[in-house]
Every structure is written in C-alpha cells, then in structure tokens.
Write a protein that binds this DNA or RNA. Sequence first.
DNA 1: GGGAGAA
DNA 2: TTCTCCCAACGCATC
DNA 3: GATGCG
Length: 651
Amino acid sequence: MVAKPKARAEPEQAPRRVGPARVGTGSVTSKHSRAPLSPLPATLEPELATLVSKPPAGDWLYEIKYDGYRMLARVDGPDVRILTRRGNDWTSRFPTLRAALMAAKLPVGWYDGEMVLLDGTGMPTFNGLQNAIESGANADIVFYLFDAPFLAGHDLRQVPVEERRRRLQEVLQETDRLRFSQEIEGKAADLLDSACRLGLEGVIGKRRGSPYVHRRSDDWIKLKCTQRQEFVIGGFTWPDDSRANGIGALLVGYVDEGRILQYAGKVGTGYTGKVSAALRQRLDAMSMPKRPFAGPTGHDTHATWVRPELVCEVVYSEWPEGGSLRHASFKGLREPDDKPAAEVAPERPAKARTRAVAPPGKLRITHGERVIDPSTGLTKLDLATYYAQVARWMLPYLAGRHAYVVRFPTGIEGERIFQQHPQGMAGLRGTDPALWRGHEPAIAFESAEDLVRAAQLDCIEIHTWNSTANAIKLPDRVIFDLDPGDGVTWARMRQAAELVRVMLQELGLASWLKTSGGKGLHIVVPLKPELEYPTVKSFSEAVATHLGQAVPQLFVAKSGGRNRMGRIFVDYLRNGQSQSTAEAYSARARPGMGVSMPITWDQLAEVRSGGHWTVSTAIAYLRSRKSDPWGGYWRNPQHLAPAMQRLRALI
DNA sequence: GGGAGAA
DNA sequence: TTCTCCCAACGCATC
DNA sequence: GATGCG
Ligand SMILES: [Mn+2]
Ligand SMILES: [Mn+2]
C-alpha cells in the first residue's frame, strides 16, 4: 500500500444501478463481489468517454483529464505489453515504462490509463509527449492508471467502476512513473472550474456502478476547459518571411457524416521553429496536386496540399456554425496509426452517437482501412460495407445477368482492370460452364456475399449486359446513356433527359431513369426478351441519330472527336452484344465515389449531378425512402416492334 | 489479391 | 499453418 | 496501332 492512508470515503452506500438479472441474491455485495474467473484476453478495446458540455445529474466520480495518450497495459507475468487504444503495440517505444511496469510486479491483468509527459511544473504537456515518443527519450513519461477490467485472473468488467478502481489501487505500488489516477472530490462544477484554473485540460466523470464496456459510453464523460479537438491536415501555406523551412499556417479539416473531408480552418500558431521545420519536412513528402477538402479554403492559391493522413490536435476559442476556427493553435500531432485520418470527425458536446455500421457479414475483408478514394478518404471497408448494405436493393437487377467488374487494386487513382470473366478468381462467381459451352464462364452475382467478396477483390464498379442467362442473346432492356461533353451544364442534362423520355413516349415506350454515379444519366427501357442484339442496337442507334438531327445543339450520336464539345452524346453503343453499362447501385471509381441511383422522373429536378448520391450517402437515402423509385420497372417489359414501326414512320 | 507450391 | 513466388485481369468504335 | 470508353 501507498504510505498515505487516504481518507477516501468509499462509496459503499452509493446507489447501485439496478441490473436486470441481479435481483434475487439478497446478499450485500462484499469485497469479493462476483467476478468470474477468466483467462486474460489477447486484446481489449477500451471504454471511451463522451464529451458533454456541463456536469450531468447523478452519482459520478471525477478524475483529472490527463493530456496524453490513452494506453492499455497487458500484464501477464513477465510478458508486459503497452498498447494504444486501437490495439497497436507500442511497447518498444516506451522501454522505461515497460521496465516500470515489470518492476511493479502487477498481477496478471489489463490496465487502462493515460500516458503523459510532465513538464517542469508537473503539468502534463501533449506536445512534449509527442517529442518524447519520436526521440525515444521518454524518461519523464508517467502512466496514470485508472481502471483494470481484468485483474488477477478475474473478469471485472461487470464489477462497478469504483470497485474496479479500489482493487486497482490496492495492487498498485505507485512510483514516479506509475501512478493511480486519484478521484478528485467536490462538486462537479467546482471541480471543472478549478481544473481549468490550474491549466488542466478538463475532468473525466465516471458513473458510479457502471460496468466496463468496449465502446464509447455515456457512463464515462469528459468535461473540457478549452475547445480542443483533432483535425486532419490537408495542406499548409508558406511562411510570410523568407524562412526556407517551416510553415505559415496549417489548413485543417474533419471528416463529415458523409465521410467527406470538410475544411475547418487554418492553424497559424502553436509550433516553434523546430517543430515547424520537422512538420514541414513530413508534409512535403505527402504533397499532392489536388485539394483534399470538399470546398474552397480561402487560401487555395497559396496552399500546398497534402494527402489527408496526418492528424493534429488543435485548441481554439470558437468554431462558428458554417465558419472557420478562431484563434486556433497547434498542440501536436497524433500518430496516424493510432487514429486514422478517416475517423477524425467533429466531436461536439452531444449525446453519444450510435454507431450503426453493419460490418459486411463475417466475410473477411483484408486491408479494410486502405483508402481507395483519396479525395474523400473512403476505404475498402467502406466499399464492402456499402455493397453488403445495398445488396437488398441491387440484387434484383443483377439476377441472372452477365456482369463485368472494374477492379482497382491500388485505389481509384491507380491501375484499372476491366474484368469480364472470373478467371479462376475464387471471389468471383462464375456462370455454369455447361450453360454456354465454348465460352468462358461469365461473372454473376447472386447474393450479398458475392458483392462483398467482389469488394474484397477491389471491384469498385459492376457493369452488366442487357440480357440474362436464360435468354442471353435477347436483350431485356435498352439503355440510352447520356454522356455530357465538356461544358455541358446540368440544366441541359435535365432537359436532354426529358427530351429522350418524351421521344420514347411518342414511340410508345415507358422509360426509367437513374444517375450514372459519374457525370451522366442512364435512361432504361425494359423489354420483353424477344429481339436479338443487332436489332435492338440499331433501334437505339436510330433513336440517337434522330435526337442528334432534331436537336443538334444538344445531342450527338457519334462518340469520340471534339464534336462532342458542349453536347451530350447519346451513347447507344451500350446496347450491343457483350457491351455493358454500370448497373443500378454500382459504385463508380471517381473522386467522391458516386453510385448509380435509380430515381423517379419527378426527382430529376432535385438531382444536381450524375454523382448526386455516393457510397457514403446512398444507404441512408435508400433507407429513408418509402417507395421504390423504379416501381413498375419489372412489371412493364415492353415490345420493341411497335416502337420500331413508329420510329420508321417518324423519320 | 490470391493461387500454387514449398517449408 | 505460414511463407514466397508469380501471375493475371477486354472488346468495340473511332481517329 | 493507339486511344477512349463501358
Ligand atoms: Mn455514361
Ligand atoms: Mn457512354
């Protein structure tokens, strides 16, 4: 035990929260309250605190909010490991701390705490810790322990937090490097006040009686003194004077709900010459030509852009809605492997957000964290999750249909592989080889799993034929792919789509509309599979040609050339044998990752581009819809022959 | 990224 | 089980 | 033959 006999009024009388199945035991919870024996898990996700703006009611215990890195120590006899909150092993970075943990002879367990660097005044500093980690000189690092979800062979996760802390304090021999994060007593409001006056970052509150859970929980809260948050660095400006090295200001942002990098403001102070130079060196190596932020920063002309991978900590006085950060000051870098840039979302005092990201089944996605669209930070896992979730809408359009996939093994900026056959790739389902002898099996999608497996193979786009396996030579649809040439406004695209619709109506054909996910629109006419490809294609060519002749200022029927400048190519070539078009709900490999979204004709007025919906936004939109935008599509396969008659008459 | 083949 | 090596992934229209 | 496009 520590020398001081702390007069810690144990909260024995604290009202326990009523647990569902704990009613009938009758016995007073003793020191050795029920805690199952348990082997020590290999990994542990820490409980995270929710940011709140004022102390809530209820029975809380408060601790100082230390300004450092959340760390976990896994102690299993001589096997001592130090892990970040994401489970990265940082043991080798903290040899002195490892030694301290070894020397402490702690029981087998998982220990949860915050690692900080104390400056001369005993105040923890984040910048200092950053420097210490990078230089390996971490003599002054202190590990404040505050919890022990596993201890001495027991699983304490269901044990109330105050009891876990009591047991932790019991086994912990405090040293200079290893300390117990004391409870601070007093009224919450006063505690926060005095913490702020002392220059601390804030206080942490924990609800008495609460268990240890592996997620952000509202049983743990943080109250902050200053506005302080992590941002992604997306660029920087040069210093005013002629200092060759260093940084004028950092341009920082955050990832919004749509996973788009939004600009937040510039950070002009807080780094000294040395830090600034080192930062500059690091950023230079990450430079890229394109602005990573979705919108303009106001400093675009003097900015050097960088890949949005570095995360920094910033304090600021104010962040007005729709405006940029005021008095922003740099506090240090976050290590990128500890918190990927894609996860840096604005954290505002609020109720804990519910994380409802359905993982794509139990199929394995390797390198799920890999960014496939640098403009948004969208990852491979995002893509796989998108396809897992969109499957219920997409699969009907894929059923029985030959598909092509477009793969991007290194993301949308890298090599593009247009793949027409499974070619022995186990992740791609092939059509029955017996079905069509002499032909290589085609790619088919029959389930959500097929879609997710394809995503694992970096298949971003899924294109399909106009016919299905049961009548592979007879198209069951005809498509008019409207491709805007350079300089075509969206208003003219709308106009063009309406004109095509009207022309088809005059031919007696009902049509359905979708965004392409890229720049254009797709107009689809479902057909009875009764005519062969060349017939259907020549019909579509005649329609395109007619449009080009009737409204030459808007339409062209020939691809290529610069005759497309300012006009819309009516791409009828999609209607040939073995040709393909991006299928409904397919993602597209373009910056922003649009998806091809079926819409009603009425919606056309509201849609702003072919990429109006994206991998990030489509699922929420689809869930919010009550009716199928393509209601009636499957119930209206149409005869083409009468339309061909009418078209001949028209010409 | 993953198959085949080797260790 | 884990490692290394090696290797594939279109057809059509247009210029 | 190269290039652009799904
Ligand atoms: Mn198109
Ligand atoms: Mn096209």
